[in-house]
């Protein structure tokens, strides 16, 4: 099991996800500088959270043009698992591996808090260890997490079973009140067609032990790493 974490200038959750991967995998992932055009052999590529290039143009837009991203996209199309968390999700939409876009939060403010999400399906590489009908508590920390796609695309995504996680209440009910950022259909995470590429707004890497306020993020990495080993 070989994991690589791509580091862009302005990434700031690269260490956090590396720590989480190592805690579950027992081995540190490779940290890959964005300027490298060659990608080490990897079973899993992670695009971490942060503010790549300051997110001054559009969140994730500049990172999508990094030399390494061409290789990442090619690997993804060949079936390598690619996980984009927060800014990584934004990058995945910018390079077209995932449809839609992440707009400014409906409140127009940065939001950092724990939210609840529910796995839309639990037969995937990432969500195998989550119960189908229970809320999972994970933190969000973003200003641009408001998922948008047109109705037709959303219908298609739902039809193809590509919604990964939805914001819900602590009782697992998917309601407008439980939606922290205005995302269409409460979407918090989205798969590509193969369900091996995942874009996810919440940060499971921040919730892997009791001392950090909870461990609901740990099964996410356990499922992923078990599935790839």
């Amino acid at each position: 099991m070989r994991a690589s974490v791509i580091v862009f200038p302005g990434s700031n959750c690269d260490r956090d996800v590396a720590v989480a991967l190592e805690a579950v995998m027992g081995k540190a992932p490779r940290m890959v500088w964005h300027g490298d055009s060659k990608l080490p052999d990897s079973d899993l590529i992670v695009l971490p959270g942060g503010f790549s290039y300051g997110d001054y143009l559009r969140s994730g837009a500049m990172a999508a043009h990094s030399p390494v991203m061409r290789a990442v996209a090619a690997k993804a199309r060949q079936g390598t698992a690619v996980l984009g968390i927060c800014n990584g999700f934004q990058v995945l939409t910018e390079i077209g591996l995932l449809p839609g876009t992440l707009m400014r939060n409906a409140s127009l403010k940065f939001i950092c808090k724990d939210v609840h999400v529910r796995a839309a399906r639990t037969d995937t590489l990432y969500a195998k260890l989550y119960p189908a009908d229970r809320a999972i508590r994970l933190p969000i920390a973003h200003k641009d997490g408001n998922y948008f796609a047109d109705e037709e695309t959303l219908d298609r995504l739902e039809g193809e079973g590509r919604v990964a996680f939805r914001y819900c209440g602590p009782d697992a009910e998917i309601t407008p009140e439980a939606n922290p950022n205005g995302s269409r259909r409460n979407i918090a995470g989205l798969y590509d067609e193969s369900r091996r590429v995942l874009g996810l707004m919440p940060h499971p890497e921040r919730m892997i032990e009791k001392d950090l306020g909870g461990s609901d993020g740990r099964p996410f990495f356990e499922s992923l790493i078990n599935g790839l080993q």
Partner: peptide, 15 residues
Amino acid sequence: WEQYDHMVMADTVER
């Protein structure tokens, strides 16, 4: 404080 990322670096034990 919800407008501040108070958890990045994943070492915040008491928020």
